[in-house]
Design a protein around this nucleic acid. Structure first.
Length: 859
RNA sequence: GCCCGGGUGGCGAAACGGCAGACGCGGUGGACUCAAAAUCCAUUGCCCGCAAGGGCGUGCGGGUUCAAGUCCCGCCCCGGGCACCA
């Protein structure tokens, strides 16, 4: 009876050893080829949950695999440690957010260590650390100097219940606050923005070269929302020199314009509104101002009729293309923030315009002839232009071009490109975030805090009350400062930065977290960037990943990051979500299955294998009743590998140096059919697992390791049972009388090679067991061994199964030589009694031969 | 409404257009044991059949092909993203 496997003790031993020996620490001058593997740094919410585990297991596998492939892998870890939960906890319990956050970080870090995931912990970064705050603020000041940060008045979501501004993500689809349930209001406040729109085109074009999931790229393209069109002026009837500027992507529909619409906030509403209409227009504007954007956009779903959402101004504008005058309405379906905040309406070719026209009884004039079988209202497809003057007879594309040229020639408009993307609002009326390093002077205006005074740190002695402004604003001394420029009395900015700012450059800081007079040395960024493999959840497909791309480009343009670093993440993998009872597993849903529970029982390795093997890494994973059994199954398999490692012969002789030597020795030990079969399986498994790891097919890699283990056990049974009569020794050919010493030696060598190979292949997946078992057998450290290489002669099968079909139905299977020719394959196939029977004397009219796999005889 | 994914045994899942269900979980049987656990071995898509064997099977309906889970057309269902963006 061999010694049992003590997962808890072994895992602790190796975790300590990797830390103590700095196995996964890397330096800038490392001679090995460099790579950078990164998991999205987490918000510290306490002990790791299964989503973290899944993320870090994939990351750790990549780090360990690449290391065995001979690369110097940068694998850092940190914490996105600013954010609302800590501040909300402070409001509730009075515990300072820093104290709360540090405790959560300690918990998370402990569970990540217990998972056996390895990082260069010397590089740990925390967003709330003064040394990180300093450089976040420094970068903000550089953006400010470059005109990429600016202040503007903007409507924001405000929750009256919480007395605070909310992020868009905190407003539910029905326009209520996710926390209090109160309807969210819009308030206009002076806010800080980052000019991400200046990079809209670059961010769009840059997507083409990224090795990212197509679906994430599509989401970003949609989010940026580039559209080409024309801006043109519609002169206001009866007001000289005043005109309404509209944006359209369909200049070809000019002759179908039957009215125009302004957004309720549009500055020309007052000009156009007649005295008779004033009251109605004002009522609509008041109503709209009260609603949040979300409510406004979901008005349809709530059943609020379109007639309630738009009113006539009584004014008219002239269509410069046709010369005709059309009435102007105010309606909330037109958004001030997109295009020019005004549209010309073509009900025949736009469904929203059609719906509105229907309610208001406005005319509908088709300018594109729909196909004869067209059913529906607005027709947006291609066709021949009609009712359109000089455009008649053209296709939509031709008419677009002709109309645009006409508009430009006549000087009434020009081509423009519009984006859905808006500038990034980064002000937060919150305490637990990075203070915006700006001083407002009544004389000089907003002035950046001098670099030498960074970081600006929030004072600890504040009251955490939900009042709608940052707790910093009510601090007795924080905001009272002198203007750095003129020395006069001034006021310090009390808002903090969106936490997405922190996460927009942390991957750069990781390359050189020790830098004290710059955010990171350009040389370090140049060496490690871009991240070769970034891993995280699909929920960050737009926000974080877009902001980080913008930041990287901006810093590169400002000369802070190296010029060649234009994209932060070369390759991205988005892991699937973990669901339970059909919903996302999350703390707020209370359906967490804590990973830490497994560490004390089956061990981290078993949980790691479960996550790797459960299914394709990109697919969602359902946590069910069966899951416990499956995790336990991986624990049993690990114990099986352990017993094999202790029982199987070791490679005899001197210094064990890895698979290459094992391979040579096994070859030298001669051969026997069963030894050869095991060696073939071993090398096929190397090829298979290597290929699977490259393709992120971890579930099939795990299956291949299972198969190899089963093969080893069969060989082990033969070892214990030399006459070959064991039920397990299926590889022993019939008539094999007994085991000679040579055969035993060959099998022993093959088994030793197979077992050591299994441990090498397992090392990135179940690192603790692989390390311990390898050390017992070979005395060395498995994670410092080179990744095994498959012998191509052994990895390719010498024989193949020839499937013989008659009329496409399988009638027989024959073992044939892999190199069999077409003629011979057909001859063999026709000789098969079952095939003869199936043919029933008929002569095949056609024979399809694909040796060595298939022959199909067609009657 | 639009854009992506995805529907394969009791369950998780495999499968360059060429043996559907690898590998597991669960089940069944056996060995070991006084017994149980652990372990090892075998078996396990469905239907008919004592068996040999045969038939049916990848959401539904068509099509292409010697051959379709895989490619094409049209549907149904599930999941996700976007959704007054002019």
């Amino acid at each position: 009876m061999v010694e049992g496997y003590d997962a808890v003790a072994v895992e602790r031993k190796w975790q300590e050893r990797w830390a103590k020996e700095g196995t996964y620490q890397v330096e800038l001058d490392d001679p090995r080829p460099k790579s950078y593997v990164l998991c999205m740094y987490p918000y510290p919410s306490g002990s790791a949950h299964q989503g973290h585990v899944r993320n870090y297991v994939f990351g750790d596998l990549n780090v360990r695999y690449r290391t065995m492939r001979g690369e110097a892998v940068l694998s850092p870890f940190g914490f996105d440690s600013f954010g609302l939960p800590a501040e909300n906890a402070a409001i509730k319990t009075g515990i300072h957010p820093r104290e709360f956050t540090d405790a959560r970080i300690a918990e998370l870090k402990e569970s990540v260590l217990a998972l056996g995931a390895v990082y260069d912990w010397r590089r740990e970064v925390r967003s709330h650390d003064p040394s990180y705050i300093r450089w976040t603020q420094w970068l903000f000041l550089r953006l400010l100097e470059a005109g990429l940060a600016y202040q503007a008045e903007a409507p924001v979501n405000f929750c009256p219940g919480c007395q605070t501004v909310l992020a868009n993500e905190q407003v539910l689809a029905d326009g209520t606050c996710e926390r209090s349930g109160d309807p969210v209001e819009r308030r206009s406040l002076r806010q800080w923005f980052l000019r991400i729109t200046a990079y809209a085109d670059e961010l769009l074009a840059g997507l083409d070269d990224l090795d990212w999931p197509e679906r994430v790229k599509v989401m970003q393209r949609n989010w940026i929302g580039r559209s080409e069109g024309v801006e043109l002026e519609l002169p206001v009837v009866g007001a000289d020199g005043v005109s309404v500027r509209v944006f359209t992507t369909r200049p070809d529909t000019a002759f179908g314009v039957t009215y125009a619409v302004l957004a309720p906030e549009h500055p020309l509403v007052d000009v156009l509104t007649t005295p008779e209409q004033r009251e109605e227009v004002e009522a609509l504007r008041r109503e709209v101002a009260r609603r949040s954007d979300v409510q406004r956009l979901s008005a349809d779903a709530e059943g609020a009729g379109l007639d309630k959402r738009g009113v006539a101004t009584g004014g008219f504008v002239r269509n410069p293309v046709t010369g005709g005058a059309v009435p102007v309405f105010v309606a909330d379906y037109v958004l001030m923030a997109y295009g020019t905040g005004a549209v010309w309406a073509v009900p025949a070719e736009d469904q929203r315009d059609y719906d509105f026209a229907k309610v208001k009884g406005l005319p509908v004039v088709r300018t594109t002839a729909p196909p004869p079988d067209f059913v529906g209202e607005a027709y947006v497809g291609d066709g021949v232009k009609i009712n359109s003057g000089f455009l008649d007879g053209m296709t939509v594309a031709e008419a677009k071009e002709a109309a645009t040229e006409w508009i430009e020639r006549e000087g009434v408009g020009r081509r423009v490109v519009n984006y859905r993307l808006r500038d990034w609002l980064v002000s937060r009326q919150r305490y637990w975030g990075c203070p915006i390093p700006v001083i407002h002077c009544p004389v000089c205006g907003p002035v950046g805090v001098p670099d030498a005074e960074l970081p600006v740190l929030a004072p600890d002695d504040v009251e955490f009350l939900p009042t709608g402004e940052s707790p910093l604003a009510r601090h007795p001394t924080f905001s009272a400062v002198e203007c750095p420029r003129c020395g006069g009395p001034a006021r310090r900015e009390t808002d903090t930065l969106d936490t997405f700012v922190d996460s927009s450059w942390y991957f750069l800081r990781f390359t050189d977290p020790w830098a004290i007079d710059e955010p990171f040395a350009p040389e370090a960024a140049s060496t490690w960037m871009p991240v070769d493999q970034y891993i995280g959840g699909i929920e960050h497909a737009i926000l974080h990943l877009l902001y980080a791309r913008f930041f990287t480009r901006a810093l590169s343009d400002l000369g802070i990051a190296p010029p060649e670093v234009r994209e932060p993440f070369r390759r991205l993998f988005t892991q699937g979500m973990i669901r339970m009872d059909g919903t996302k597993m999350s703390k707020s849903k209370g359906n967490l299955i804590a990973p830490t529970a497994y560490f004390a029982t089956v061990g981290a390795d078993a949980l790691r294998l479960f996550h790797l093997a459960a299914g394709p890494p990109g697919d969602d994973l359902d946590w069910t009743d069966q899951t416990e059994e499956v995790v336990a199954g991986w624990g049993r398999w690990l114990a099986r590998v352990w017993r094999l490692a202790l029982e199987a012969p070791t490679r005899d002789g001197a210094t064990p140096v890895g698979a290459e030597a094992a391979h040579d020795r096994a070859r030298a030990a001669g051969s026997s059919p069963e030894a050869l079969a095991l060696r073939r399986l071993t090398h096929q498994t190397i090829a298979r697992v290597t290929d699977d790891l490259e393709r992120w097919s971890y579930n099939t890699a795990c299956a291949a390791l299972r198969t190899l283990t089963n093969g080893c056990y069969h060989a082990l049974a033969g070892e214990a049972d030399p006459d070959g009569s064991s039920a397990g020794s299926t590889t022993t050919p019939a008539g094999d009388a007994g085991d000679t010493p040579e055969r035993g030696a060959a099998r022993g060598a093959a088994l030793a090679e197979a077992t050591d190979t299994l441990l090498l292949l397992l090392a990135p997946m179940a690192p603790h067991l692989a390390a311990e078992a390898w050390e017992r057998r070979n005395g060395s450290h498995v994670h410092l061994e080179p990744w095994p290489v498959a012998d191509p002669h052994l990895a390719t099968a010498p024989t193949a199964t020839l499937v013989v079909q008659v009329d496409g139905k399988v009638r027989d299977r024959l073992e044939v030589d892999s190199g069999i020719g077409e003629e011979e394959a057909i001859a063999l196939a026709r000789r098969s009694p079952r095939v003869v029977a199936a043919l029933a004397g008929a002569e095949p009219s056609r024979i399809v031969a694909r040796p060595p796999r298939l022959v199909n005889l067609v009657r």
